[in-house]
Design a binder for these strands. Structure first.
Lengths: 252, 252
DNA sequence: GATGTACGAG
DNA sequence: CTCGTACATC
């Protein structure tokens, strides 16, 4: 079973790259973040033509998440089912696919430390944990993936000193990720430390000034056999600033 | 000697198509309209890499004209050298190239008849005639080309009834074009009546609902051997709404 | 419909 | 730097 997580940064701009990813990798599941369109504008027909169903939670300008799957999905939840700090953004969606569940998240970036947006990020991560803890047991087969906007360790940045005080490396967000790990979700890319995001500015990709902030996590009921980053998608014409992360599991 | 006139509708968006045109046609001269950038933002290096010099008169958002040439050009004039109706827009540029002169124009569209913009169009055409009449004799070798925003005759529209009262077919603008012809400039495409522009809307190109508004005119000192419209550029991905017009002349 | 502007977001 | 928004021009 192959699953991909990708912050596509506008599904309408990058639909051709998405179709190429589906044709090349033939994944069973694809979790997309930042589709940046309303649910009704999702290109269902394009992905359907390659055999994929899609459950979509979109909104007008920003955010927006979707899960594509070969198997017909059962919608479990459209997000965290609650307002967080007065906002109800399209940042989480989960489905049941056969014997396991997939939760796809787009964690708020948080702008800068000690901003309202950073407070919102912390609250959102708290709500994420509460939602997971209330819906699943740690021995359930569960995959949680997406753009976490958290670099779990210093090794997940090209320059820890430069990123030290950023919202992506702040100890409070790292601690909340640790809470998910302690609960029973393993960060499957933690040892490889492969970057998944490179800033559009300053030739970030060309200089390999990247971060690992897109994660695939899973409970121990699921056995991961392989995980890698499809860097080539970051090097294409008109790329997303994120590369897809691809994990394979033993048939559950 | 081969010369091309093309309303490129943003030279930065369509730089690859321009380079393709240069490689395919190997013209001696290319007159561009609606480059839509300031002079300093013109992609000089790209055209230089294919052996072309460029004289450019640009402005911030709209308009902007340029002349590319294999031979190093002598700048004759940056436009009509005068304000017209209080405006000084980047709509005309001329150069001397060896033994003849080239004047490249982007005539105002005029919005609708009996609008301020239409008055401006008429004034601009008057100023164009005055400028030509004051600078050249009718036996000088001179090419005047560009987007005239005038369909000279009913045969130059796909549906004369539909276009009858448009600013592109108004008798007052046609009369001013006639004044240029009477002065000594021959509209070289007048007999072929090939369309050069198709609206982006309503599948204008697919239905061949076009107009001939891009003209190459020349004095009788220059002998035209061929003129055609490179329609294929209108059928490409992300096309300009205008196709290039290509004329060939006996070596002067 | 396809450009440009300016802005807010990342 | 590259998305989205909304608006103006053709």
């Amino acid at each position: 079973m192959k699953i991909i997580s990708w912050n596509i940064n506008s599904v309408r701009v990058r639909i051709e790259q998405l179709l190429e990813l589906l044709r090349q990798e033939k994944p069973d599941i694809v979790c997309l973040q930042e589709i940046k369109c309303e649910s009704g504008d999702f290109p269902h027909l394009d992905v359907r033509s390659l055999g994929y169903y899609a459950v979509v939670l979109g909104q007008k300008s920003y955010n927006g998440v979707a899960i594509l799957s070969r198997d017909q999905p059962a919608l479990v939840s459209d997000g965290l089912e609650t307002d967080i700090g007065g906002l109800r953004e399209a940042r989480a969606i989960s489905t049941r696919l056969g014997s396991f569940d997939v939760l796809n998240v787009y964690v708020p970036n948080g702008d800068v430390v000690s901003s309202d947006k950073f407070d919102h990020k912390l609250k959102w991560l708290d709500a994420l944990f509460e939602s997971i803890d209330s819906k699943w047991f740690d021995d359930d087969p569960l995959i949680v993936c997406g753009d976490f906007n958290i670099a779990p360790e210093d090794e997940d940045t090209h320059d820890p000193a430069q990123w030290k005080s950023s919202v992506l490396c702040d100890p409070r967000v790292r601690k909340r990720l640790k809470t998910l790990e302690d609960w029973g979700l393993e960060d499957l890319g933690r040892d490889a430390h492969e970057f998944t995001w490179w800033d559009y500015r300053n030739q970030g990709f060309e200089k390999d000034e990247g971060l690992r902030i897109d994660l695939i996590m899973a409970t121990s009921a699921l056995k991961c056999t392989k995980i890698r980053v499809a860097r080539e998608f970051r090097g294409m014409e008109q790329p997303s600033d994120h590369a897809p992360v691809i994990a394979e599991f033993e048939a559950p």
